[in-house]
Structure formats: C-alpha cells, structure tokens
Amino acid sequence: MSASVQRVAVLGGHGKTGRAVCEALAARGVGAVALGRSDWPDLAVAVAGCEAAYVIAPNLHPDEPAYVASALAALLAGGVGRVVYHSVASPYAPAMPHHMGKAACEDLVRRSGLAWTILQPGAYLQNLDLTGPLDLPYSPDVPFGFLDLSDLGRAAAVVLTQEGHAGATYELATRAATVRELADEAGVEVRRVPDPGTHPWLSAMFAYYDAHGLPVGDRVLKSLIG
C-alpha cells in the first residue's frame, strides 16, 4: 500500500491531532491535505486525488455520527478508497455520551464500503500541564493508558500508508501510569478539585475516570511503530 498512497486527506487537519498526523505523513514523504470546516461544503471535491483519509471529528461534537456519515459519503463520492477513523479507547462506555457517539461512528465506518482502520487512542499526555501544580477533577490514582501525540501521528501514518491494516482496530497508548505517577516524575503537586461543570459530557467523563480511569495497554503501539 505504501507505494500507492501519495496523498492523504486529513479531516480536522488544523487541530493538534491533525497536525501530528500531517507531520508524521510528511516525514514519510506523503502529501497531507489538511481540511477544516471551510472545506466541508465541497468536501468531495477537496478529497479528490487522495488515496486515503484520516477522519477526526471536532471535540465534543453534538452529533458525531452525522458528521462521520457525511464525511464517509464525501470520501466515497471523491473516489477515496481508504479511511482511518480517529475514535477513542473504550468507545462503548454508556456512562460517557461522547464515547458512545464514537462507538456509533465505528459501526458506520465498518459498514461504509471503504477499506477501513480504526484507531482508539488513550488520553493524551499533552492534556496534562506538568509544568506546575496540577488541578484534577478526578482521582489521580486510577489507571490510565496515556498517548503521546507524536506517537499517535506515527501510528496513523503507518496504518495509512502500509499494507496489512485494513479491517483492524487498534487501541493506542504510549505508557500505562496514573496521573500521580506522572506528577511525581515531573516533581509537581497534584491537587483534587471540584468538577468545573463546563460541559455535561465532560462531567460524565470525569465521574467515569474517578471510578475506573481509562486503562489502555501499550503493546499495540510498540508493535506498530517500534
């Protein structure tokens, strides 16, 4: 597959995840076409000439299945043969509405008629500001599988450009740790604070994290990127 993939459309390519994917593709000599909301009305035209696409929905999208269904239709109309969908670790978690949206999207992707791969990333390491005291609205002692953005980009570039990944679903984590362990390594204090209540889906996520964390193994990522 690597010889035939010269251009990849990255839907959501201007955000931090999309930039990591575009940078990793560029490092492999593959052209990355970063697409955003302004491209949506003519998405089928924008993706024409791309052999594959990486689909990232906006964070906390109110109807991610509708967004992904529209994206898949545009990819088919534009002649794109391969799609990699950016999901989440543990998508079927009924207590977290935005995870459930991604579970529904995974089903759409699998039935799209495109050659597909699904990536299920753990929590980003970059979401934790370890430069000073860390305020956390959930327990710092629950297990997580944390993913470095650069590793996500490298894994995405591998499955987009190499053979053998069609029909695969991969959970991705760089390392397993608790937030307290990361804070201790960085030499910063971690402080438990109340849920700020900025979004009901985030509140649901914090409650789930407090009870269960979000554990993800790291062996799959190592097998993909070495």
Rank of each mutant, 00 (worst) to 15 (best):
S2R: 13
A77R: 12
E185T: 13
V84I: 06
D107K: 08
A57M: 07
F146W: 11
A77M: 08
L11M: 13
P196L: 05
V21Q: 04
C105P: 06
Y124T: 08
A104K: 09
N127Q: 13
W116N: 05
T117C: 15
P94I: 00
L72T: 03
L134Q: 01
D148Q: 14
I56R: 02
A176C: 15
H199W: 05
E171Q: 12
L125I: 11
A73V: 09
S4Q: 12
V159C: 05
P121D: 07
A32S: 07
N127T: 10
I56D: 02
S150T: 14
N59M: 14
D107R: 11
P65M: 03
V159W: 01
V193Q: 07
P65A: 03
L130K: 06
Y170Q: 06
S223Q: 13
P94H: 01
Q126P: 13
D141E: 11
N127V: 07
V216S: 09
A157I: 00
R219G: 13
G167E: 09
S2C: 04
L35P: 05
L149M: 13
A24M: 04
A123V: 15
A95C: 07
Q120Y: 02
S150L: 14
A207V: 02
Q162I: 03
L128Q: 10
S38N: 12
G122T: 06
A177F: 02
A166C: 11
L119E: 02
F206Q: 08
H212K: 08
P91G: 04
S223M: 12
P140R: 02
V158E: 06
I225M: 05
G31M: 13
G29P: 08
A9E: 09
K16A: 15
R154M: 14
I118E: 00
P94N: 03
L76I: 07
G13F: 00
P97Q: 02
G78Q: 11
K222I: 07
D151M: 06
R37D: 14
H99S: 12
S87R: 00
E163K: 11
S38T: 13
A24K: 00
G79I: 10
S70W: 06
H14S: 15
A32F: 00
Q120V: 05
A66Y: 00
V88Y: 01
A207Q: 10
K102S: 06
G213Y: 00
C105V: 04
G167V: 02
A115M: 08
L125H: 13
V80I: 10
E106C: 08
V45F: 09
A103D: 09
V10G: 00
A71I: 08
V80A: 11
A156P: 07
K222G: 14
G78A: 12
V179K: 02
L75K: 04
L130W: 05
L125K: 05
A69L: 08
